[in-house]
Design a protein around this nucleic acid. Structure first.
Lengths: 186, 186
DNA sequence: GTTTTTGCATCACGACTGTAATGTAAAACG
DNA sequence: CGTTTTACATTACAGTCGTGATGCAAAAAC
């Protein structure tokens, strides 16, 4: 048989191509053929690694979650040891905002998946777990109701940033303003 | 010629059918044929009133905006004359939250259109105008940065309500908590 | 009453979709 | 070395999509 291949590596390559297509042309442009072409492969390859399209979509969603997780971890590490709760929370929240092209792309994919999840319960479940994990973590360093509010606020800011309704300065101002009201003015 | 017909009435009927399809099966299920079938008509009729699909989508989006506007107006009227700013703002914000089946349907359609707008600049423009009008109005009765934050918060809460990540009580608690922090505890 | 216009239905077209079936070459395995 | 297994390509299929063309009955216009 041909050179043995790491399946998850190939699957990740395909998912990356999917995300490029979704970010540039919307989730509705995500078809087996477009994704395959973007990945420089054939539909047969995609079919080999994902029996069905839904399976591929679900995997891609998990890849996006992974990206966010990695970025948040990196942001935490960049803060040094035992940071102030406010700084930590701010660093994490900022990673959820689409402030650069990379995060905008992820954000667009995430948004597309939100709409996708509206009719796919299993997709919705993946998203729910992601945000609940985040809220639980926030709740360990700030009062519970504030964690809930902050998460929703960040999500709303992300939405308005994506549509260019809010500027980066406006969004960061809103975030810092809310953190002020929770932790007190610095 | 056959009985003369009010075009906007027919267009609205079609848009209503579109929204039913979108709410139940997602925006990706919105096709000329499905919408026509849901409206009890043929694709020829739909084509007669909307030259192209995009035209139909755009009109439907404006219908959703109209729904929201009507609901907000009704909520304001229900408050009686010269209400307290906080009560007025709360009433408006609540109308943006998908707390009953009707608003959930609208919310799902609105969310689907958010994703749709990611690749359609003209659709994005319609949405931008809607939220900016809202923010401007909020800003007339509360400090400007708070209006910005509130709008984003409500949008985020709406998103989490739609995905059943937050309960109605949680979302309303977050909204009231934020209003407390702006207007002072009642 | 004839003509014209309008509302809508029907059908055809080419493009695209997800999926299944089949083929093929290469490397691992016994 | 021969066989089996794996990775991937190619092709075929039935279905759906948006759109344009054509048809036709009914009512308005004259």
């Amino acid at each position: 048989m041909p050179k043995r291949v790491d399946p998850t590596e190939r699957r990740t390559q395909i998912a990356d191509a999917l995300m490029r297509v979704a970010a540039e042309r919307g989730l509705e442009a995500v078809s087996l053929r477009h994704v395959a072409a973007e990945a420089g492969a054939t539909t047969g390859l995609v079919q080999h690694y994902f029996g069905t399209k839904d399976e591929m979509m679900l995997f891609a969603l998990e890849v996006v979650s992974g990206h966010i997780g990695q970025r948040m971890e990196a942001a935490v590490n960049a803060l040094g040891p035992s940071p102030a709760p406010r700084d930590l929370i701010r660093a994490l929240a900022v990673q959820l905002l689409p402030l650069d092209e990379q995060r905008r792309a992820d954000g667009r994919v995430g948004l597309a998946f939100f709409a996708y999840a509206a009719t796919r319960p299993d997709v919705a479940e993946v998203q729910r777990r992601g945000s609940q994990g985040l809220r639980d973590f926030f709740a360990t360093m700030m009062p519970e109701p504030a964690a809930t509010t902050l998460l929703a606020l960040v999500e709303g800011l992300a939405l308005y940033l994506l549509t260019d309704t809010y500027s980066a300065a406006t969004a960061l101002g809103a975030l810092d303003g809310y953190l002020d009201s929770v932790f007190g003015r610095p």
